[in-house]
Every structure is written in structure tokens, then in C-alpha cells.
């Protein structure tokens, strides 16, 4: 028993569990501390005498706490996912799906665009010199900050629904893919390139047989970044649409009405989606690399 425990703590699982437990503990302490002033006020106004344990219990059960306790958020998530119909406007699954669909669409377009740009850049010196600096500059423009404007403008010319939000995700996600793929397509060993040249391989053959396979690890590494950033783009893209649907709309509605528990549950839902998307890309990475005959590192 103690041996398995020791092994657990020598690896990663134990420390990670410990850190998560510590975060939850800190969260509880913070919740108690931050909710106390208001709770004292309530007790004082009602004229009730209270003990410390009563105060702590009350701080963790407020309806609109400054910082909701983890279990309150968990209960809220359970109520809005398992106990509501999926089609209901109050179901978190419904809102998550709205966000997820535009995330995935934007991610797919962004990845395709990123790969296309990288292929063009690797094959043309002019594009490499002229486009690459601007691709990097394009990311210093805080697109997230002007995302609401893009949504409003696209709505004005009649493009509404999924596409405008997906456009934001595309803009954000093409960048890591382009940068990663340019690096990846240039990663083959000069020796291997020379070998293919001695075989008098054509450009297309060099691309498909050497450059593309050796860029796959880079592709997946950048896709992990891209999918996470797509989700952020989709959420911010939902902020200005008048709080109709989606996790971003949930955040905005929650902040308007002071529903802190709702905000936190939307945040946790977003975190869970982000983590699952990144994990999925990671799993795809493992499968693809295995089928390509790579050795697990």
C-alpha cells in the first residue's frame, strides 16, 4: 500500500492531485473570507447571535456570494446539465454546444488556412519575406478586443449566426498553425533533403514524402494551442450578440444580474471544454504518430 503511494508521489499523478486539492482548499478559505463581511452584515441586521461555525456555514451557502464555494458551483453545474433538458435555454449543455460548434468550425478553417499559408511561405521566398513579418504583426492587434465590432459589422451586412464567431476563432487559430508548420516543413534534416535530391525527386515528392511527414509533430503541437485559443475567440465573440446563447452570453448575463454562481459555472464549463479539446488533440497526436511508425518518447 505504502509502496504504491510512494510510486504515485514519485510520478506526476500524486503531485498534481496534491496541487489541485491545495487549490480547492485555498478556494474554500478565500470564499469564507470574502463572503464574511456581507454575512456579518446580514446577521447584524437580523439581530441574530452567531457562532463562528454558523458564520462559516452561512458564508458557503449564500445566494449571490462574492466568491461562490466550489460545491455551490458543482451543484449549479449539475443542476444545469443533468437536470435540465438539453434544448432548454437554461441548460449549460445547450450553451456549451453553441460555443463548441463555432469553436470547432473556426478551428478547422483556421488550421486549413494556417497549413495553406505555411506551405506557400515555405515554397516562396518573396512570401516568406513579405508575409511572415505581417503574420506576426497581425497577432499584436488585439483581435479579441475588436471581436465584438467584427460581429456587429458582419451582422450589419447580413452574415450572422455561426460564421462571425467562427471568423474570430479562425483569425486567432491560424497563427500558431502557420508558425508551427513553417517550422515543421523546414525541419527535415538537410541530409535527407539532399538524399531526395540525389533521387531527383520532384518538389511535390519532396513535400509529400519528407516535409509533410516530418511536420506532423509540429502540426499537433500548434493545433493544441490553436484549439484552446479558438475557444477563447468563440467566447469573446459571443459577448456582444445581446446575450442570446453560448458560454460568453452566460458570462455577460451573469455579470449583469450579479449571478456569481452562474458566471463561475460557465467558467468551469469553459475550462472543462478547453481541457477536453486539448486532450482530444493530444490523443489524436498519439494515434497518428503511432500509425506513422513513430516511437513514443
Amino acid at each position: 500500500m505504502s509502496k504504491t503511494l510512494a510510486r504515485l508521489f514519485a510520478g506526476k499523478t500524486g503531485p498534481v492531485l496534491f496541487v489541485i486539492a491545495a487549490i480547492i482548499a485555498i478556494w474554500y478559505v478565500a470564499a469564507i473570507l470574502m463572503n464574511t463581511p456581507w454575512q456579518r452584515d446580514v446577521f447584524a441586521r437580523a439581530g441574530t447571535d452567531y457562532s463562528t461555525s454558523m458564520l462559516i456555514a452561512a458564508t458557503l451557502a449564500q445566494e449571490r456570494p462574492v466568491l461562490p464555494a466550489p460545491h455551490q458551483v458543482a451543484v449549479e453545474i449539475w443542476k444545469t446539465t443533468a437536470l435540465k433538458k438539453i434544448t432548454s435555454k437554461r441548460s449549460l449543455v445547450f450553451h456549451s454546444w453553441v460555443t463548441l460548434s463555432s469553436t470547432l468550425l473556426g478551428f478547422l478553417i483556421g488550421t486549413a488556412l494556417g497549413i495553406a499559408l505555411a506551405v506557400a511561405i515555405v515554397h516562396s521566398r518573396t512570401l516568406d519575406r513579405s508575409l511572415m513579418p505581417w503574420i506576426i504583426t497581425s497577432q499584436t492587434i488585439p483581435i479579441l478586443a475588436i471581436a465584438p465590432m467584427i460581429i456587429v459589422v458582419l451582422n450589419a451586412i447580413g452574415i450572422s449566426g455561426l460564421l462571425p464567431k467562427a471568423f474570430i476563432s479562425t483569425y486567432l487559430s491560424f497563427f500558431p498553425v502557420t508558425v508551427g508548420m513553417v517550422k515543421g516543413l523546414r525541419s527535415p534534416d538537410p541530409m535527407n533533403l539532399d538524399l531526395l535530391r540525389t533521387y531527383s525527386a520532384s518538389r511535390a515528392q519532396i513535400f509529400w514524402k519528407l516535409r509533410w511527414p516530418s511536420s506532423v509533430p509540429f502540426l499537433f503541437a500548434s493545433m493544441k494551442v490553436a484549439v484552446a485559443i479558438s475557444l477563447v475567440g468563440a467566447i469573446v465573440g459571443e459577448l456582444p450578440t445581446g446575450a442570446v446563447a453560448g458560454l460568453g452570453a452566460r458570462l455577460l448575463a451573469g455579470s449583469y444580474y450579479g449571478q456569481t454562481i452562474q458566471i463561475w459555472s460557465a467558467l468551469i464549463a469553459a475550462a472543462i471544454i478547453a481541457a477536453s479539446l486539448v486532450t482530444l488533440v493530444g490523443i489524436a497526436n498519439t494515434i497518428v504518430l503511432k500509425r506513422m511508425g513513430g516511437q513514443p518518447s
Binding site: 510520478g11 506526476k12 500524486g14 503531485p15 498534481v16 492531485l17 496534491f18 496541487v19 489541485i20 487549490i23 462574492v66 479579441l144 493544441k224 494551442v225 484552446a228 475557444l231 477563447v232 467566447i235 469573446v236 458560454l247 458570462l251 455577460l252 451573469g254 455579470s255 450579479g258 456569481t260 458566471i263 463561475w264 460557465a266 467558467l267 469553459a270 475550462a271 478547453a274 481541457a275 486539448v278
Partner: peptide, 26 residues
């Protein structure tokens, strides 16, 4: 702590942290 924090930190870096904005404003 290093072994525990690194995966958690990597994971948190991928999260849509921007969502805490309304909470911070509150």
C-alpha cells in the same frame, strides 16, 4: 511542487482566463 504545478499550470494556460473579467470587475 514543481512536478505538480507544471501540468496544472500548463492546463490553466490553455483555459479561457479572459472569462474572469466580469468577476474582477465585480
Amino acid at each position: 511542487l514543481r512536478r505538480g504545478l507544471l501540468p496544472v499550470g500548463n492546463m490553466v494556460s490553455a483555459l479561457p482566463i479572459i472569462g474572469v473579467a466580469p468577476i474582477m470587475v465585480m
